[in-house]
Nucleic acid binder design. Sequence first.
DNA 1: ATACTAAATACAATGATGTTGCAAAAATAA
DNA 2: TTATTTTTGCAACATCATTGTATTTAGTAT
Lengths: 137, 137
Amino acid sequence: MDQLRETLKVHQLRTTTCREDVLSTFINKKNALSHGDLEGALGENYDRVTIYRTLKTFLEKGIIHKVLDDEGLRYALCSHSCSEEKHQHDHIHFKCNICGKTNCLENQLIPEIALPQGYKPENFNLLIQGTCPSCNN
Amino acid sequence: MDQLRETLKVHQLRTTTCREDVLSTFINKKNALSHGDLEGALGENYDRVTIYRTLKTFLEKGIIHKVLDDEGLRYALCSHSCSEEKHQHDHIHFKCNICGKTNCLENQLIPEIALPQGYKPENFNLLIQGTCPSCNN
DNA sequence: ATACTAAATACAATGATGTTGCAAAAATAA
DNA sequence: TTATTTTTGCAACATCATTGTATTTAGTAT
Ligand SMILES: [Mn+2]
Ligand SMILES: [Mn+2]
Ligand SMILES: [Zn+2]
Ligand SMILES: [Zn+2]
């Protein structure tokens, strides 16, 4: 895929097979992934440490963002143009208690919140847990 | 403090010095605490494992609730009457990027959220990061 | 007060997760 | 192709978390 190389190039990263594979894993599986998930998918091919460093790099460059979870951090693709300077995420994350998958609801924005005097909010992270459409019958 | 013993009794837990100390640590420090925080405060007196198990027990009994964080789980007191059956938490958590403390904003409720068809929300976790009143001058 | 029983703790062992330093390999630039 | 810079793999280490078990303790019955 040339799309992968393009994304890496845009973020000023060298093309390596590990980065291509990690990126394409995020694209193929649609849901948020933990380091362990990636290790499970690619661990035969790459060292644990390399995957850690790839995640760190992608995070810094604005290719992925952290997704809060009640049992460990996950990561998901930044859909819009995040960069090294600013990550902008105002969408909701939904974790299904049945299938266990966590997804970005890109179109569901976190509503405006009024905070008491003195609080200067900068980042918002909303995780909703429940049952997802696939598991809800 | 007899208040501590009372709280433990209400949740059908035996009174032990470790449980009293963990509970009073949560009460004294007002902010959310990680296992590491508690180990730092009480590690001389109790084994790491005992603190883990105390947190697990408190969680199950509805004495504390999880506070999501981008760098590791924390816990905070359940102010209202949570029980073994149901944890009900609809308040906001605020993490200060300066002092690093995370607090429950008990009075700031998470607003109603409209989700797409098929999603059955059950739990809400909203973490707002920024500058807290104490660090904001 | 003492003995009994169930629960909680300490300790050791093990496993999972995450980090650091550095030599070898690979990607880009010259 | 060669030189330069970045990335990777590996090993060592550090931190975090879980499990099993003997001992101790809390609550209860005697
Ligand atoms: Mn997202
Ligand atoms: Mn809270
Ligand atoms: Zn599901
Ligand atoms: Zn602060």
